[in-house]
Design a protein around this nucleic acid. Structure first.
Lengths: 420, 420
DNA sequence: GAAGGGGTCACCCCCGAC
DNA sequence: GTCGGGGGTGACCCCTTC
């Protein structure tokens, strides 16, 4: 209902040559939805503004990637399974967008590289980006048809097997360090430990700009918003597929069966809330269930919380949704109606609504068939039980590592790059 | 309720020396539940009777194994996960039984071997039996404390990885055949094909008796009933864990949510039935749902069938259960009550039961809250959709291969055996 | 074919009862 | 601890639909 509705994007991968003005303002030539581009973190925004003031080159993201995407193992890459779209891609065909970046305040040729960074640091992620069937750095040469904007279409995210990651890190570090600068066994241990701190279900795109001839970085990198692995119960899209009832009594305690997409019983809650006329949240409570009421990750049996006014004289429309405490994400809400108890209603209403015949359909008064209630449900979720990833000891979020230079080789419009 | 209730077994692994009479009757010295022992197939029984008539030795199964057991991969065998029990093991502790076999009409020493056979042929199964941490043939030397009965306790079933099976078969066949009797490539192909026809989720125990000195078979083998892998959706125990309602209207169409153990949406049905006073089935119908109403193998939303008498004047107790068409197995039934429509009841009853107040608990008349009903459900399960294993082209069920002789080596009471 | 999904195999753990 | 289970996960393999 809410989060999937966007303006039908005007930015697409077919870049408009008319918008190719070398401007200092980040607010030019884009659709209304991008007047305030969402940046990966505060420091980038500052950097941009500094760059604008000082007339220095900078990168800015014009189209963010979608926030949910299925990471694929290399063995799954025989066929094709769709590419990473832009956040504003329309569901309908023919208006797809792709992650897009613009190099501002710059003249002449430049090379834009797209790679994967970790979600909570600027370090490289062990997963790999892929472009169609090619297995090399994802780069694009600018200007492209006169534009300094480039859309990366056809991207996929290759899920590196967990067991391969320590070795991968070891290779990387042992190459970077001189032969005598490290102790092999110790470095291997460090890589094992670092592996534990890498979240394999969240990545960010990292864009870097390089001088075409030297490979030297032109400006600081920019990072996209996080992209969550759609296949993992820790990061997937929460969804209530179906429920057996969408109404209950104001004193709560009604049993509801919901069928949901994969959840983790240690890290899931059900939030009821009410919005007033202007959309502000005026009440909130939780559905009650035990971990054992979560059935194999795909169904939850819970009891409704009491409404804030158990003697309400009128029916009240509220919402309920899934909530994942570890990252605060929630599902699309479902409507739920607290049906005012017939004895609390105004006399006029009571006459009209009560005593409707058993088994008739379509009446506005529902009856409550789940009585007597199952008692003693309690929401026992505790911080300890939720298995939240401990915050790893890593560079803070706003630390930007120096962009390494690239070794370049031209290959048509594509540039083959290697780490120096 | 029904299938798990048995006499509390008197046969246990502690064999009673008193029952060690060399008798010709298979009906002696066992508990009432074994007066008619269940034999794996008809031909065995004939063989037994022939053997009895002719005074020849024969094997008979005294305690069958349980029919559901979790097969474990070798990598899961670090800890301990419980052993294969006898079918009549009591749920309460201290009265466990184990698969038990008796060698009849025989004097002197004999060696009883237990191994795994396929469910639909007498051929050896690629899975392995294990006994505690030992990895060798499971054998026992008879007589044991004067008895010709032997219980195999501490058995586990090791799940051979599917990808390893062609190689395993190839090794076996290429050893059995002479060097020039086979074409390597062709044999490998045959092994690939044979692998497809082996059901890795069903095994049977095969018991063979051997002369201690020569290893020659003493009598034909006997086979236990099938043992199904508890972890596979194709063979596991069907179970309705929870349902949101256990009653409905006689004309049916009420929506029921059930939470179930892992099922295959292409191979599952819901059967309603009614028993008369003497336990005969007098009515049967199906719950209606689409494959898409099966939620990730763990929940089903269905609508109830109409009762045979939609105008019943009294409430009717019936049952519903899960049914797996491929093998005809079903879950424990749950009770379901068709509540007579209030207008069809006898006048006296109507007075007492109708118009009870909304929201009160404990009354015998339930109300129906799921109206209006979801329409247009239809049970569309067809034979074609059920993905039933095709019957492989293999020896018929009653074919018994000649028992191969064993190469023997004594090691205390245990005998180390090798295939000749 | 493309673009999405769902299910499975093999493995890795977890827990509660002793 | 260990026993006797049980649930979840990573990697992979398929299947629907267009």
């Amino acid at each position: 209902m809410s989060s999937s509705e966007h303006d039908n994007m005007s930015e697409s991968s077919n870049l408009d040559p008319a918008s190719n003005e070398s401007t200092f303002s980040p607010y030019s030539g884009t659709s209304p939805s991008q007047i305030v581009p969402e940046l990966a973190n505060g420091i980038i925004e500052l950097t941009c503004e500094d760059a604008i003031r000082e007339n220095k080159p900078y990168l800015r993201i014009i189209e963010e990637p979608v926030d949910y995407f299925r990471f694929r193992y290399r063995s799954e890459m025989l066929g094709t399974h769709g590419c990473l779209l832009g956040r504003n891609s329309a569901q309908v065909k023919k208006s797809k967008s792709h992650p897009t970046v613009e190099l501002c305040n710059y003249n002449g040729s430049a090379l834009i590289r797209c790679s994967l960074a970790r979600h909570n640091s600027s370090l490289e992620h062990p997963h790999k980006l892929t472009e169609e069937d090619q297995d090399r750095d994802i780069t694009s040469l600018l200007p492209l048809r006169g534009s300094y904007k480039v859309a990366f279409s056809g991207l996929g995210i290759i899920h590196t097997a967990k067991k391969d990651i320590p070795t991968l890190l070891y290779k990387r570090y042992s190459q970077e360090l001189k032969q005598n600068e490290f102790n092999e066994r110790k470095l291997r241990m460090q890589c094992e430990n670092e592996t534990k701190n890498i979240n394999l279900n969240i990545v960010r795109l990292m864009f870097t700009a390089h001088d075409v001839t030297t490979g030297a970085p032109i400006c600081p990198p920019v990072f996209s918003q996080s992209i969550n692995n759609l296949k993992s119960a820790a990061t997937n899209d929460l969804k209530i597929c179906r429920a057996n009832r969408y109404y209950g009594r104001p004193n709560g305690g009604d049993t509801v069966y919901i069928l949901v997409e994969k959840v983790n019983k240690k890290n899931i809650a059900i939030r009821f809330y009410e919005l007033d006329e202007i959309g502000d949240k005026v009440w909130e409570d939780r559905g009650h269930f035990l971990q054992s009421d979560v059935h194999h990750q795909y169904a939850i049996v819970f009891t409704t919380p009491p409404y804030r006014d158990t003697k309400t004289k009128t029916d009240v429309k509220v919402f309920f949704e899934l909530l994942r405490p570890s990252d605060g994400r929630c599902s699309e809400p479902k409507e739920f109606t607290y049906i005012a108890d017939v004895y609390n209603r105004d006399v006029k209403k009571r006459k009209a609504e009560s005593y409707s015949s058993l088994g008739s359909s379509g009446g506005s008064v529902k009856s409550f068939s789940d009585l007597p209630l199952t008692l003693d449900f309690a929401n026992t979720l505790t911080k300890k039980e939720m298995d939240i990833d401990p915050m790893p000891i890593l560079p803070p979020n706003n630390y930007i590592p120096p962009t390494p230079p690239l070794k370049l080789r031209l290959d048509g419009r594509r540039v083959v790059t290697e780490r120096v």
